[in-house]
Computed example of a mutant assay.
Amino acid sequence: MLDAAVRLFVAGGFRQVTLDDIVAEARVTKRTIYSYFGDRTDIFLAAVERRRNRTLGQPIQGGSLEDLASTIVSALHSDEAIGLHRLMVTEAHSFPDLAEGFYRDGPQAYIEALSARLPEHDLDLARSLFTLLLGESHRQRLLSLRSAPTHEEAATQARTALRHLGISDGNDAAN
């Protein structure tokens, strides 16, 4: 159901997609959708939450900050994440509650996950790191000027961001 909803939202926009459209695309009943999610807003936010859970819920190899940062780069530069981000930028003004939920369940949650891996859970440093992890390459992805990074490109971007912030080995902040 979420895959069908995401495809429709990304292709047609939040405002244009009806619950009936999602029902038809997912080949389920409205009752099924209501029992799992609720309305369109709930479905959209469930898709954002699913993306976050897939990213932060997966075992991060090595468990280091660098590994988490690389995983976030890969996830947030993916076609699905880029599509949801574009949609949210387009619809935020008309649907402020949706925008608030998107930020809370998306970027804010990633920043908090990064903060949890930093010494003293430095939230300001985590915000700066998150900004660098998206960076110019994310803007280029949003504008369809580049493709999603490979695993190695994501790892390189993560290492570069950590180095620019003075985080030495992916586990500890440099003095």
Rank of each mutant, 00 (worst) to 15 (best):
L132H: 10
P107F: 13
E112R: 14
L84W: 00
H85T: 15
E66C: 11
A154Y: 08
A116D: 11
Y34G: 06
I167W: 05
G13C: 00
G83R: 04
I43D: 04
I111P: 01
T71A: 15
R50M: 03
L129Y: 02
D79M: 11
G135M: 02
E112S: 13
V23D: 06
S147Q: 15
V28H: 05
G106A: 10
E66I: 08
F44M: 10
I33G: 09
A5C: 09
F95C: 09
A113K: 03
E136G: 15
H151F: 13
F14P: 00
R40F: 08
Q108E: 15
G13I: 00
F37S: 07
L132Q: 07
L142F: 01
A173K: 13
L65K: 05
V10Q: 01
R86V: 00
P149Y: 07
I72R: 00
Y36N: 12
E91N: 07
I82R: 03
D20V: 14
T131V: 14
R7N: 12
A154R: 01
P59N: 11
D122K: 08
R141I: 00
A126P: 00
T29E: 08
R139K: 14
T150R: 05
M1L: 12
A46D: 07
H138K: 10
V48Q: 05
P59F: 09
A81M: 09
S78I: 02
D79P: 12
D3C: 03
L19A: 11
E80A: 02
E91V: 06
Y36C: 11
F14L: 07
A46I: 03
G101F: 00
R31F: 12
G13Y: 02
L76K: 09
V17P: 00
D79G: 12
V28E: 01
A158R: 00
F95P: 02
L123G: 02
F37A: 07
